[in-house]
Amino acid sequence: NRRVIAMPSVRKWAREKGVDIRLVQGTGKNGRVLKEDIDAFLAG
């Protein structure tokens, strides 16, 4: 159960899209999950 680094707005975006943010690979600094990462995860 790893800790995910993400801005609150990104966490909210993931929740709205029904995405478990822990499954998303972050591409930002220090592995931070970005809004673009959520979109890419949804795109496959």
Rank of each mutant, 00 (worst) to 15 (best):
D39K: 08
R32V: 06
G26V: 02
G26N: 02
N1S: 13
K17D: 00
A40H: 12
F41H: 08
A40Y: 09
M7V: 12
I21E: 00
P8H: 11
I21C: 00
D20I: 04
I5L: 14
G26D: 00
A14F: 03
K17I: 08
V4W: 05
Q25R: 15
N30W: 13
K12Q: 10
E36L: 11
G44D: 14
V24N: 00
L42H: 07
I38W: 01
A6P: 03
S9F: 10
L42T: 07
K35P: 04
V10W: 03
K29Y: 12
L23C: 12
R11D: 03
D37I: 03
D39S: 08
E16L: 15
K29C: 10
V19G: 01
G31P: 02
T27V: 02
W13N: 05
T27W: 03
R32I: 07
V19D: 00
A14V: 02
K17Q: 13
R32M: 13
R11W: 15
V19N: 00
K12V: 06
S9P: 06
V33N: 02
K29F: 12
K17P: 01
N30Y: 14
N1Y: 08
I5N: 11
L34K: 08
K17E: 04
L34N: 06
L34Y: 07
R32E: 15
R22F: 09
V10H: 01
I21R: 01
G28F: 02
D37G: 00
G26E: 00
I38S: 00
K29T: 10
A6Y: 04
L42A: 11
V33T: 05
G31H: 07
K35N: 04
K17H: 15
V10I: 06
G18C: 10
W13C: 13
L23F: 11
R2E: 08
L23V: 10
K17R: 13
V10T: 05
R2S: 11
R11H: 09
R22N: 12
N30T: 05
W13M: 13
R22A: 09
M7P: 08
N1I: 12
L42E: 05
V4N: 05
P8E: 08
R3W: 08
W13P: 03
E36Y: 10
R32Y: 06
V19E: 02
V24L: 06
D37M: 02
R3S: 09
L34F: 07
K29D: 09
G28W: 01
A6S: 06
L23D: 09
W13D: 05
I5V: 13
R22M: 09
I38P: 00
D39W: 07
Q25L: 13
K12Y: 07
